[in-house]
């Protein structure tokens, strides 16, 4: 065991010198964008969520608000609250902001029709005009030391819900069609970035990067990711420190991808952020389950199973984090 390793505790991720942490991020951000990439500023896709909000707040501190552009990118399925909160955020930090509605582009790609066709083949009574849908991992399939199995859930007008397990073809079609959303947003962000000679400032946090909760060349497309190595609880800590609006801090993180409301915990992470942060830290830094379990009020077997799930997630999503491979010829 590393003798410098701190004993595992619930406050092990707390940023004690938060001003220094932010200052260091800002310094590196300026070096990378100005000196390395030679861009004049940054564009950020803002959703009213905590990650894009903290990214904007940090970037505004680094570059100054006049060298930033916040872009809201709603589409047919987006919650109106997202745009409202994103505008409130940009105004608070004095950042110019615009709305680019991508629904027309998504229609053109067949995003909605391709997705709905796959849902209807599993739940024929689904009517996309009036019903809502989402993709879920039911709680009973969590922590089984098995890869997650996804279900589609349709919510009918009377509030009743029907769930069905997704076969491979339909699951892949729903995911592929939905990913048009993030990729269309990336296209629009790069349009504005190139038109201004700015860099695209990406918004994923550490979990999204490491567990592969992003779309390759979608929200994973960016030139820099200032919070990409921060845990979610640290993102919240910085949000409070930098004065991100309270309504954004209190908002439950959602996917804002499907027509039905869905939290990120329900769709992907399967455990609260506070718990996941600590367990990921424990796993990544090789804390033994016997040390972590009592702090987390879990059994060693539970911690062991979660460690295995983390390892599997990181390994199976390596493809997403890998840039194009090009070293095939070494002449």
């Amino acid at each position: 065991m590393n003798i410098d390793k701190k004993p595992f505790s619930r406050d092990i991720l707390h940023l004690d010198k938060i001003d220094e942490v932010i200052e260091n991020i800002c310094t590196k951000l300026k070096e990378d964008v100005y000196k390395r990439f030679r861009r004049y500023g940054g564009v950020i896709g803002i959703s009213g969520g905590i990650d894009s909000s903290v990214t904007l707040a940090i970037a505004a501190k680094a570059f100054g608000p006049e060298k930033l552009l916040g872009i809201m990118l709603p589409e047919t399925d987006s919650s109106p609250e997202s745009e409202f909160l994103a505008r409130e955020l940009a105004n608070k930090f004095g950042v110019k902001n615009i709305v680019e509605n991508i629904s027309g582009a998504l229609d053109g790609f067949g995003c909605y029709t391709r997705r709905d066709e796959a849902v209807k083949s599993v739940i024929p009574e689904y009517d996309p005009g009036v019903n809502k849908m989402k993709v879920v991992i039911p709680q009973e399939f969590v922590n089984k030391n098995m890869p997650p199995v996804h279900f589609v859930s349709v919510i009918f007008q009377d509030g009743s819900e029907k769930r069905a397990r997704l076969p491979m073809k339909e699951y892949l079609q729903i995911v592929a069609a939905s990913n048009f959303k993030q990729r269309s947003r990336a296209n629009m962000l790069y349009y504005h970035a190139e038109a201004l000679n700015y860099a695209v400032i990406g918004t994923p946090n550490k979990h999204e990067v490491q567990q592969g909760f992003f779309v390759k060349y979608g929200d994973g497309a960016a030139d820099v990711m200032p919070i990409g190595n921060l845990y979610k609880t640290q993102v919240y800590q910085i949000a409070k420190y930098l004065g991100v609006p309270e309504a954004i801090i209190k908002r439950t993180p959602t996917t804002d991808t499907y027509t039905a409301e869905q939290t990120q915990e329900e769709f992907f992470y399967q455990m609260p952020f506070e718990t996941m942060d600590l367990l990921w830290y424990g796993w990544e830094n090789e804390y033994a389950p016997s040390e972590v379990a009592p702090v987390m009020k879990m059994t060693e077997d539970e911690v062991e199973n979660i460690y295995k799930n983390f390892a599997r997630k990181q390994k199976t999503t390596e493809y997403l984090r890998t840039p194009p491979l090009h070293d095939y010829y070494r002449g």
Partner: peptide, 17 residues
């Protein structure tokens, strides 16, 4: 096969098929 980290959701769905 799950502990090896090579059998993911896609693998499981493929196996069910």
């Amino acid at each position: 096969i799950f502990d090896e980290g090579i059998f993911d959701s896609m693998g499981l769905l493929g196996l069910i098929n």
